[in-house]
């Protein structure tokens, strides 16, 4: 394992400390328990947004703390959901009296730990609502699974719900907007290489030189199928197919097309993927009205990509366009 780390046990603490020093204009850091909070939190009368989960998906979530997006992010150990303590502490730190929304990716660990934190916060008189993001169509949502996973679509939920909170929506409304995004967003990913968790020191799985994993999540877990490497366009078609069928997306829809890098893929490849995805959507009469390309929900150094589509209406579009000022997503100010 070759990584720019000191003691693997301190990876998250040191990275968060560095993040805090690098972005003093946007965030403050709590070191014990560890969480990242918007510099000006709590904002009286504004709904607070808290998300979190295992580390290793940066810039998710810390990179999205700031004006117009999250109020706090709670990073767990690498690929391990945080415990309730820091979630509770972050929830208290952002409560401006208008209640707090927890944005939780659908993993057993995240759901259970956020649930406990929400119960504890409620016991302290803070109104908490939770939404569960589950955009990954690679996993069937059925009795026979833990349900679809939350992956890159989470970024879109955080941005749009964050804009709703920033414009002054009440908790119910912010949660409702988040639910609308969740109901309209679908993703699917592919890995070309595994990632190496610092404390594990070995690849999360093994792939031959000509193999790729289709339908991977964001924790270096194996996907649904292992196939031979194919040209980028063919891989894009494999990812887009299940996404388009799922809601389904249809001609005339306006969508946000988000091509996400898994962390180790050159940008040039992400744009090759974007090109093909846009081409397929154009052929189907689906109109791409907003776009996002880059490493936003990663799996450490994994090479690969995921494609996310979100159905847009006028309100979601306006909320997407609203100003945002975070370390990883910024426009309008």
């Amino acid at each position: 394992m070759k990584k720019l780390v000191n003691d693997p046990k301190n990876v998250v603490a040191e990275a968060v400390a560095g993040f805090g020093v690098a972005h003093t204009d946007i965030v403050r850091i709590s070191t014990d328990p560890i969480f990242i909070v918007r510099r000006d939190a709590p904002l009286a009368g504004k709904v607070g947004l808290v998300s979190g989960g295992g580390s290793g998906h940066e810039p998710l979530h810390g990179g999205f703390v700031g004006f117009g997006m999250l109020d706090a992010a709670v990073p767990g150990a690498v690929f391990t959901s945080p415990t309730p303590d820091p979630i509770l502490a972050a929830t208290k730190a952002v409560d401006g009296g208008a209640g707090v929304l927890h944005i939780v990716k659908n993993y057993t660990g995240d759901v259970l730990n956020f649930e406990t934190a929400a119960d504890l916060a409620a016991a302290e008189g803070i109104e908490v609502r939770s939404v569960i993001v589950n955009d990954d169509v690679a996993v069937k949502d059925s009795l026979y699974t833990a349900g679809r996973r939350g992956v890159a679509g989470t970024v879109l939920v955080e941005k749009i719900a964050g804009a709703a909170a920033e414009r002054g929506d009440a908790l119910e409304s912010v949660a409702g907007i988040a639910e609308r995004v969740i109901s309209g967003v679908r993703s699917m990913g592919v890995a070309l290489t595994p990632c190496v968790v610092p404390h594990a020191g070995e690849g999360s799985f093994t792939l031959a030189d000509d193999e790729i994993e289709i339908g991977i999540g964001i924790h270096g877990e194996p996907g649904r199928a292992r196939i031979k490497l194919e040209p980028a366009d063919a891989i894009v078609d494999r990812l887009l197919g299940p996404i388009l069928e799922d809601i389904p997306f249809a001609a005339g829809d306006k969508v946000l097309l988000f091509v996400n890098g898994m962390g180790g893929t050159p940008q040039i490849e992400l744009y090759i993927v974007f090109r093909r995805a846009a081409e397929v959507l154009a052929e189907k009469g689906i109109e791409v009205t907003r776009t996002l390309v880059g490493n936003f929900t990663t799996s450490l150094e994994m090479q690969g990509t995921s494609i996310t589509l979100l159905k847009l209406d006028d309100e979601l579009t306006a909320l997407w366009d609203a100003p945002v000022q975070t370390a990883a997503l910024r426009w309008g100010r």
Binding site: G54, G76, A77, T80, S81, P82, T83, P84, D85, Y107, T108, G109, L112, N113, E115, T116
Partner: peptide, 12 residues
């Protein structure tokens, strides 16, 4: 365990 393990195993 609840405050140090995290993941699914911690709460369970």
């Amino acid at each position: 365990l609840i405050s140090t393990v995290g993941g699914a195993a911690g709460p369970l």
